[in-house]
Design a binder for these strands. Structure first.
Lengths: 348, 348
DNA sequence: GGCCGTGCTGTTAGCGCTAACATCCCGCGG
DNA sequence: CCGCGGGATGTTAGCGCTAACAGCACGGCC
């Protein structure tokens, strides 16, 4: 009696023996080749089921050169966006019959990126997907010459490699227009870190919408995604409001900063939407439960994942697919409203 | 001139030819075998560097049976905890020279878990790590007989498979004791979903600490991790407070529910820490920026990842390692304080 | 001085699979 | 009635690597 040891042994020829055919016929059945008699196919399939056979991917990878695995490089998954991007990607990859291997870099340095790509190539992944939000990463990715397709996710830029992302500019315009439509004279903007392409695109969208509406474009306010930067900007802004400045609407590049800003305003006795209208970006799970529930822009990460995987697979088939950016949507909740009437209104 | 096509061809014998040795000697150098003359090793290493050779993992996996890849099964990575667990695991795996392949299940059904394990086994991962927070997953995992080591993360239970996790009971006791120390007569508790072992452990820790202090143990309040469940419980609780019930301290099984509860209380004109003391669990990045900054319990996910990977590797070496649970820490911020004096205090 | 052990290196044989080719058998047309 | 084409199947040769064994030189020992 075999001890507890590996019941592993199950190889193609075991199935072949049981079905009374050659291992090659089993291979044909497994890979869905056409020229197998229905009767034979039936018998092989039954043998596979009875034995619980599953082909060895390493052997298959060795001979075909394909592992049906995709590598994904990301940075800073503590943020909601990147985490959701990962989820969307994994679902889409799995749906397409691919596995996803991840590399979560501590820093988006060129070196770290190159190493990650290298490791993936060494692993014989079929393609590499990479989050290229930050310039350092995007540049590094741009330089890497990998022997496999490489597609960037959320790079936002029109780099040469195929890139798929959510339309950040459109999202920012949505947020800004909403505020303008409510009657605000202009909209202030708290940015993400300047080395983030996504953050810069949100600035561009915000400015574009302001200009299109003929509204003045105030100096943007620098944040860095963290709640604490939103808080710092919030304290500053609250003081200016208290000082009599006409600031009634703020669009922040993400929800976490909105959280910080809301807290800072609250400390100064200023509350949304009465004293200030606030729009975030991301739709964190907790956004509906902030005080007040946050109006924000939502990105469809599942769709993003699907398009990214679709692009990669097209590339693998030799097609050159340049997908459209995914459109974001605005979720109006309670942190936005019409501006309060202050002292003597400028006009009328 | 070769077109842009694959510069792939680089195999061991190319290196061998360049170094003037046999491919086996190259193999020995690559794998750090001892019996290679320093001079030879030097030459081979140089050839490897010059050629930029990297061994083919598929071929290596085929013959050794090891891919130096770990599979990780998780559910619902939208939650902060699971996401951080993934990060911790990936860092630790990479540090140990392993790749991490992920499966993010939509549902923790036995079937989905079995399938994921199967896919990983088919992929020839060396071991499988699985988040077993939910009973369905834990049970399914328990039944799966995989031909590779399987270690569960955050299963919290004393199941047979080696499990590594953060000490949830200790965390809950920390939170409860903090509230008791502040002078609260007792502490109410909002739970996570009942099919989560982590959630149940937090209930156990809460009850244990209450009993140890001789405090009454109120009925627990059912939540499900979501901010909205915290909000619902919050409305309920706020009404009871308004009705004169002596409820002064709440410990919630996660920060998101604390967020919801805080919002509900705020709507009723009740604020922390004046009217109610609130402690969460997880230390979300935004926890310091809630109104008020949230006192919470923090789990060390990096350490968790390290121990999980350490356990898996020990298993692979044939050792039976049963790691200690990771101790959590309490972060005191501003959502907790001494109870307000209400009407006629019971004693004195 | 011959024998043997001890490094070092090369040779051989697969790992489990797929692709290419070889083989067989059948039905059909000339 | 024979040859031929094509569908079904089997056979063979690797994919790139490591493990096991073989060979070979050198030095120490009796």
């Amino acid at each position: 009696m075999q001890p507890d040891a590996a019941p592993r042994a199950l190889v193609m020829s075991d199935v072949a023996a049981r079905a009374g055919v050659s291992h090659q016929t089993v291979s044909r059945v497994v890979n869905g080749h056409p020229n197998v008699a229905p009767h034979t196919r039936e018998r092989v399939e039954q043998a596979i089921r009875e034995l619980g056979y599953r082909p060895n991917t390493a052997a298959r990878a060795l001979v075909t050169g394909s592992t049906r695995t995709l590598g994904f490089i990301t940075v800073n998954i503590n943020q909601y966006g990147p985490a959701q991007t990962l989820v969307g990607l994994e679902q889409a990859a799995r749906a397409a019959g691919y596995s996803l291997s991840v590399a979560i870099l501590d820093d988006a340095t060129a070196d770290a990126v190159r190493q990650a790509v290298d490791r993936f190539v060494g692993q014989s992944v079929d393609a590499v997907l990479a989050q290229a939000t930050y310039d350092a990463a995007a540049e590094a990715l741009h330089l890497v010459r990998a022997p496999v397709p490489l597609v960037t996710v959320q790079s936002g830029g029109a780099v040469e490699e195929p890139a798929v992302g959510v339309d950040q500019i459109a999202g920012a315009r949505l947020a800004t227009r909403h505020l303008l439509d409510l009657g605000h004279r202009t909209v202030h903007h708290v940015t993400g870190p300047p080395d983030s392409k996504e953050a810069r695109d949100r600035v561009i969208g915000w400015q574009a919408e302001l200009r299109a509406a003929g509204a003045p474009v105030p100096q943007h306010l620098a944040g860095d995604w963290t709640p604490s930067s939103g808080y710092a900007v919030g304290r500053d802004l609250a003081a200016r409001v208290r000082g009599g400045e006409d600031i009634t609407a703020v669009f922040l590049a993400n929800d976490q900063m909105a959280l910080g800003l809301l807290a800072a305003f609250h400390e100064e006795g200023l509350d949304a939407p009465r004293d200030i209208s606030v729009v975030g970006f991301d739709d964190l799970p907790e956004a509906p439960y902030l005080t007040p529930p946050l109006t924000t822009v939502r990105q469809d990460f599942a769709e993003l994942g699907r398009r990214a995987v679709g692009t990669v697979l097209a590339r693998l088939r030799g097609e050159e697919l340049h997908p459209e950016p995914v459109p974001p949507t605005l979720l109006v909740r309670s942190s936005t409203g019409p501006p309060a009437v202050r002292r003597a209104p400028a006009a009328f």
